[in-house]
Each structure stands twice: as C-alpha cells, then as structure tokens.
Nucleic acid binder design. Sequence first.
DNA 1: ATGAATTTGTACGTATGTATA
DNA 2: TTATACATACGTACAAATTCA
Lengths: 252, 252
Amino acid sequence: MDQKSNHWKPELDTAPLYLQVAHHLESRISNGDYPVGTLLPTENEIAAALGVSRQTVRQAIGTLRNKGRLSARKGVGTRVEAGFDPERKRFIAHSRSELFEIAAETEFVIDTKEEVSAQGKLAIELGCRPGRKFFHMAGIRYPGNRSRPFSWNEVYVDSRLAGAVKDITVARSAIFHYIEQFTGEKIQEIQQEIKPIALDEVIAGKLGVSTGDLALVVTRRYYGSGRRLLEYAFQVLPAERFTFTTTLRAES
Amino acid sequence: MDQKSNHWKPELDTAPLYLQVAHHLESRISNGDYPVGTLLPTENEIAAALGVSRQTVRQAIGTLRNKGRLSARKGVGTRVEAGFDPERKRFIAHSRSELFEIAAETEFVIDTKEEVSAQGKLAIELGCRPGRKFFHMAGIRYPGNRSRPFSWNEVYVDSRLAGAVKDITVARSAIFHYIEQFTGEKIQEIQQEIKPIALDEVIAGKLGVSTGDLALVVTRRYYGSGRRLLEYAFQVLPAERFTFTTTLRAES
DNA sequence: ATGAATTTGTACGTATGTATA
DNA sequence: TTATACATACGTACAAATTCA
C-alpha cells in the first residue's frame, strides 16, 4: 500500500520485536517483494537492514517456518514457500496468530444465543462441575465474500464473560478476541482437537451439503492465565473442502 | 533403568546438545522424577546441574513445549503437562522425532510388496510424471503388545531406494529411518495431511472394525535435501480410538 | 577433487523486561 | 514491595552444509 513498504520502524510498547520482524517479513512476502520460491536476504542482511540482532531475525524466521511460510537449508538460505492452496488448506490454524488471522478474514453470523447450564456430557466436555453456567452461541462462518458457508460453529463462554459477546450478531474477529478485550486478559493457550464425523441432516442442511457427508470437527479450549477455561468452541468443516496439513521439520 | 537416571553426560558427535537435554528431561518425566502437574527446576538450576547454558535449556524446553509435554508461565515456572490419554494416545505426530518414537513403539507387519508404476491419480498424488517406478508396501501397524491393529498403512518408496526396504517383513522402526540408513541422507521435512474417510469393507476387516466406521487418513510426504520426494505413505486410523490434538501457544 | 567463501545451526554470555507470588 | 522465574534481546564464536572457483 505504501510507496515503499520496505520501510520499517520498530514500535515501542507493542508486540515483541521478533514478532514485529516476522510480521514485516510476512507483509513483504505477500507484497511480492520476496516472491515464492526465491530466497530471502541472509539473516545478517535482514538484521543489518532492520537494525536488530541476528538472533531476533532468526526467532522471527523461526515463527514463519513453524507456520510453513519459510523453509531454511544450511549453506543455502531461507526459501519462501508456496502460500496456501486458497480453497482447501489454511482454515485450520497452527498458531494463535494464524487462528486470529483466519477469523479476521471470515464472518461468523450468529444464529442462536442462549444461557445454558452444563449438564452430563457437556459438563464433562467442558471439564467443569454440572450446573456451571455458560453463554452459548451458534451459527455459520462465511468467507469474506459470503460465497458459501464453510463451517458450522458453536461457542460456549463462561457466563461471567457473557457481556463480552452477548451483543454480537456478526463477528468479524475471533470470539476469543472479544473476550480478551472485555477482560483485558490474554488467552495464553488454545487446545485443539480434530476428529471426523458424518454430518447429520441439520448441520448438512446449514452447510449446503448432503446428509452423511464427512466432516472434520475441530474442538478448541481457550485458557487464560492460570489455565482457567474461558471459552470452549467447536467447528464443523465439510471434508471435501478442507483438510488439515502440517509440516514436520528435521529438528525442533 | 539406571540406578540413578539423573546422571547425565553430554555425548560428543551425536545429536545437538539441546536435543540431548530435551531427551534427558523427557526421560526424567517418564521416570517419575518430575511428576505430571509439578514444576520443573528453574531454567538456571537445570542449566547449572547439567553444565550447559540457560539458552540451551530454554531451547530444549521449547521443543517439549511444542510437543505439549511442558508449559511455562512467567514468574511461576515450567509445568509438566499430562501425558496423553493412554488409550487414544499420541499416534499422530507433531514432530519428526515424535513420529520416530511412535514408530519405534509399534510394529509394521508387511502384507504385500510390489513394484508399481505411478499412473493417473497416484502420479498426481505423488507429484511425479506418470510411469515413474515406486516400490509399494502395505500392511498393518500394531502396538508393541500386538493387542489389536491400530492402523492400516501403505508406503511408496522411490524404486531406486527399494533396496532399503525390500527385505523387511516386520518393521520395528520408521520406514523413513531405513531409507536414511540406506542412503545416508537425512529426511529434512515431512508434510502431513489429515482427512476423514468412511472405512470400506476391506480395510475395516483388516482393522477389526465395522464397515462404514469413520477414520482419519494421515498422508505423509517425506522430502530429502533439496526437497526431493523420497517416500509417500498414508495411514488409516479408526476414529473411535484416535484423535489428533495440538496446542496453540500465545507466542511462538 | 580440493579448498575457500557463504549461509544457516548451535552454543555460550550478559542484560533487562514482565508476570507472578 | 520485593524476590522469583520465564521472556526478550543484544552480543560473540564456532560448527556444518552447501556452493563455486
């Protein structure tokens, strides 16, 4: 967007420096300054150009390698990897920040809202005593262009935090982001579980696919500091449109 | 196994120091020296005890945090996290080393072996020109105690590397390990893809579950240096016994 | 085929920031 | 408020893999 977006200045009082560097590199990649398949400048060059230490650059590159955006080889350099297959891939996150980005590119249109009391199976799922109150929301998540639904979502939020979410009709950000802003507390850890299901009539109908089609259910538990469960959510993704992919590196 | 397995000595000419430290910590955890739910000694204490720098300890702890074995909180310490639900266990890997460990704890009993030539769908899956030759093996992977099969596996190896695997009848190590020993080349990267299927009669029968049951298919592509595809494999895991879980941390 | 230059990987040291108890 | 313990960030040096003259 800028005339020259290789302009970079560290901001004070915000994110850690290495994340700022990571974000900067990412934006230059998507700008086309560092095309897919090419090598980045060397770590030392980047460090010199940005006025940070090589360690910091390495840590930034490390986070992008974990996300699969970059790969590195000794004696060669750091390669920009292919972006994501725009249709499939991508919609299951590998990191908190990625989860955040995905949510920002989609819209969660909320269908139903209600106060519920956890009983039986739900209480076990949530790992709480039966009777604990939660605020429950359900609806469809659409891609930015609203072409067709890509997931069915259900969210349970501790009822003391209901104020953070009860007025939302369309969420354009991650639900956990609303919670963070409401409480001022940062979600420290998200546990994610993936399993297959066959779609029942109701959800298949909402997603515009056939009953009995296969899907992946991604269940997430969001923990604040001290490992307090703040949010529980699950998401149903039709199998023919989404797969989950990860890259396992040699070390680390 | 030792009288005192807190005995630790860095070995020369082997793995990087931080991985040795990670492995040491892991074994002390499974020994019960560091029980689940307790805090590890501080980073400085570990560093002093082992005679390595605090950075190295941090890097070791970092790899175990990525695997979900540990979690850390500022001002508090580093907590030993619950192992995995012993039934569903951890049979989908998050890192190369974990994949290696899992394979070592199981047995791959090979059913069929043949030379195949990649055509049509297979050639596309493998990302190679039609007609390229592969050595194909298929069979069941059992837990160490051979109680009941837990996955159906199919492996495709570049036919020039067939010598690495063609005499195996029961593999007690990862197939990629045989390839590494044969070629002397290390697998640099493994790409992993997860999607759901409904089991057909044949595979359901082999796994001892019902036809139509849901399963996860984990497809893996193994790349050597220079991103050459050395192995392609997929694994079918019955859904009711396995789920895939990951933990997303706040930063990384 | 050898060796030098390049580039990432590992390891150590030190200092300061920040969340927690 | 103070002390503790992890988090970030700077620096240095050398090892290991690759490339190329």
